[in-house]
């Protein structure tokens, strides 16, 4: 009789183990914000949470989209003045803060530049003339945005594009929804903006690879992370080629051209999704030297993996224990 009880307990244990690892996992993929998104969550409420995240991201896309005629950003760009929702106001304010933190390397007013380079769907990629770029540059810069209470105003030729920060904000919102649903193990990828929520179901950290910028089906290293956003900006993600020359989509607000800072990929690790997204673009524009200074002043806020045009890999000291790679790399000390 006793042995029968032990056998039953043993079988029950196997059954519980199987149900935890298989039944409570739920994944979904959807297209939003001009990219493809995937959310995988483990836990009792995983299906409810994942579906709520898809709804939330589609809602945010309708607020922040630069091309959707009903979005708040589209309306602000065409009317030049708007009382937007609290969320849009918060994101514009945050963008201006990060712009000042990065000496203008992060800039949400590059919309007219991205437009003349044809980096919006429906437009043809082209290299604009120097004259065209010079005509647009005076309306670029965070100083052309005014916030008075809850009203945002733009200078006459200024237009906003939150594309370099909206996915980060959205992944932060997604992580919040998971938390509200009691989920402590999930992985979110919003077009390459990764957010690791908690740990894997077995308690080990999530492994997030960093794409090789020269061959997107290979990886240059792996980060082991818990509760962190991991965001990469690279010239390889969106680009066009004309006369044998490659032009990528990350525009330097100072020159009006695709950034040429000597970096070809920047990965940021941070607890703050919005900051991680914005800084990956900012540091791609700033280059290695300025990135080192920024890290020295803010090493409690973010870590970074940088790949230079000559294939050298640099990681910040605070990622030393979480980064592994077959390649050799230099450590940037705080």
């Amino acid at each position: 009789m006793k042995s029968l009880r032990i056998i039953c307990a043993f079988l029950l244990l196997i059954a519980v183990f199987c149900s935890c690892s298989l039944d409570s996992k739920y994944s979904s993929e959807f297209f939003a914000m001009d990219t493809v998104m995937s959310v995988t969550a483990c836990g009792k409420q995983s299906e409810t949470a994942v579906n709520a995240i898809a709804d939330e991201i589609n809602r945010l896309d309708r607020l922040f989209s630069v091309q959707n005629k009903n979005s708040e950003i589209f309306r602000l760009n065409s009317e030049k003045q708007l009382n937007p929702s609290d969320e849009t106001l918060e994101l514009i304010t945050r963008s201006i803060e990060i712009s000042s933190m990065t000496d203008g390397a992060f800039d949400i007013t590059t919309e007219p530049l991205s437009r003349i380079w044809g980096f919006y769907s429906g437009l043809e990629n082209r290299v604009p003339s120097e004259k065209e770029i010079k005509a647009v540059l005076p309306s670029v810069g965070a100083e052309h945005i005014k916030i008075d209470g809850s009203t945002v105003s733009l200078d006459k030729s200024t237009s906003l594009d939150l594309g370099a920060i909206a996915k980060g904000y959205s992944s932060g919102r997604a992580a919040k929804i998971l938390e509200e649903n009691g989920i402590s193990s999930a992985l979110i990828s919003l077009g390459g903006n990764v957010r690791a929520v908690g740990t894997k179901p077995d308690g080990s950290p999530w492994s997030v690879a960093v794409t090789d910028p020269d061959n997107s089906s290979e990886q240059i290293g792996v980060l082991s992370v818990k509760d962190r956003a991991v965001v990469t900006s690279g010239g390889y993600q969106r680009y066009f080629e004309t006369n044998g020359k490659r032009y990528h989509h990350i525009i330097d607000a100072e020159t009006g051209c695709p950034a040429q800072s000597g970096l070809k990929s920047v990965t940021i690790v941070s607890q703050d999704d919005t900051l991680a997204d914005a800084l990956s673009t900012a540091i791609f524009v700033m280059g290695l030297q300025k990135a080192e200074t920024l890290y020295n002043d803010n090493n409690d806020l973010f870590g970074a993996v940088l790949i230079t045009d000559s294939n050298e890999i640099y990681i910040t000291e605070n990622l030393k224990d979480s980064f592994s790679s077959y390649h050799s790399y230099e450590v940037i000390k705080a």
């Binding site: 077009g191 794409t211 990929s265």
Partner: peptide, 20 residues
């Protein structure tokens, strides 16, 4: 269109900078 491995063990859980 997305083409992906359904369940590949031994590789990373996600990839930063890839489109998914």
């Amino acid at each position: 269109i997305v083409i992906k491995f359904e369940n590949q063990s031994g590789s990373a859980d996600a990839e930063a900078g890839a489109l998914l």
